[in-house]
Design a protein around this nucleic acid. Structure first.
Lengths: 209, 209
DNA sequence: TGTACATCAGTGAACGCGCGTTCACTGATGTAC
DNA sequence: TGTACATCAGTGAACGCGCGTTCACTGATGTAC
């Protein structure tokens, strides 16, 4: 995914403009470029609108034809990433029927997403950019992801458990998963046990395995 | 801690230069200013050398009299913050003798540090700035903090536990604490249960309470 | 005791950079008549 | 079938900003003789 040249000197790669009536394609190109940049520039640098334009070979102003501001672009990217995460998790569970196997697959896939796409994960769950983008809980781009996680946990616990208890168990588990991913990127020099080991231990401790 | 004026327009507040021979005082002033800026500008903005100079009322170049580069300044700040975190945790445990009470106090103090000083916590445990500052494990500014945590956990488990098992239990617990703090800042709109509730649940699950 | 000099804590001015954003413009393509 | 015109997908050029860093300089204070 990383560009061949260390520094892109060429400002204007060849790029045919979209056919008349297809200007909206640029929107997808922009989001894709942002995705690529965040995936490759794994160091965690913040995304710049100009870098996205450069990546596509378009003038910086052209981004404004599709997004009102940089924040709007980021919001669109975040929505894409949450959908991506959801697909990743769903795929991992596909075919599994045992509730506990499904939960374990869900947890491991969540970690895998964070560990293989740090740029994407950090934008979703660490960035100051997204915490003030209006992403709260109800109806937020991430809420579907959380709700599917909660349902997956529900299948592993007693049906007589109270809603707050289920919620608490889910959130405690989520915090562990986030810690596994986030700390690993924060302290790469630390002798981390495999993510799988940590996930299995917490599932066992919470009596979910 | 927040500055009275929204935007500091005045570029040159009155400031007496340090007496001859005391130029090194500026070093402390710089670190203090960085501490203040990170504490108040809680939004999570990255620290700039020029902002630090502005905060003290000194020219940007003056920082170079005390630090070779911005990274050196950051390293000094990080060391300060780790020491600060250690003091915070030690203070919470002071006077407690029961091993499990001490561990619980340690965990709650860790969360409290992260929740009350997000700027400091994020620099220590979320920033791209520090993960490449040469902060690994052995001998790193943060290793003392981890080792004291590991010792505190050790007092709560069977003396026959193996070293890798103890290490794993400690790391799993740490990941949970980090998740509790980090996710809360990342998703302020989410209906989080109290940090204490989550800490107590994971301690119970890990049979440490 | 007076003075030349070294030392020290800083500053003035500038460098080149990338950033988000705005305004006026271009040039190809389709459409109305 | 030809042509004037509207629409559309973009660009040229510039704005003001803050950033890390460098180089040459200043002016007060202490010290050697």
């Amino acid at each position: 995914m990383r560009r061949a040249s260390g520094r892109p000197k060429k400002k204007r790669p060849v790029r045919a403009r979209n056919p008349r009536g297809q200007g909206g394609r640029l929107r997808t190109e922009i989001i894709d470029a942002a995705t690529r940049l965040l995936a490759s520039g794994g160091e965690g640098e913040p995304l710049s609108l100009r870098a996205v334009a450069r990546e596509i070979g378009v003038a910086p102003q052209s981004v404004y034809l599709q997004f009102q501001t940089k924040s709007d672009l980021l919001l669109a990217v975040v929505e894409m990433f949450f959908a991506e995460l959801q697909r990743h998790v769903d795929k991992a569970k596909a075919g599994l029927t045992d509730a506990r196997a499904r939960l374990r697959a869900h947890c491991l896939a969540y970690c895998d997403y964070g560990l293989s796409s740090p740029g994407h994960y950090k934008l979703l769950f660490e960035s100051r950019l997204t915490s003030h983008l209006g992403i709260g809980y109800r109806g937020s781009p991430g809420s579907r992801v959380f709700e599917s996680f909660l349902e997956t946990v529900r299948q592993c616990v007693s049906p007589r458990i109270s809603a707050p208890e289920l919620f608490r168990e889910t959130v405690v588990l989520w915090a562990e998963l986030h810690g596994v991913v986030s700390l690993r990127w924060s302290k790469p020099g630390f002798p981390w046990p495999p993510a799988e080991t940590m996930v299995d231990r917490v599932l066992e401790a919470l009596n979910l395995q």
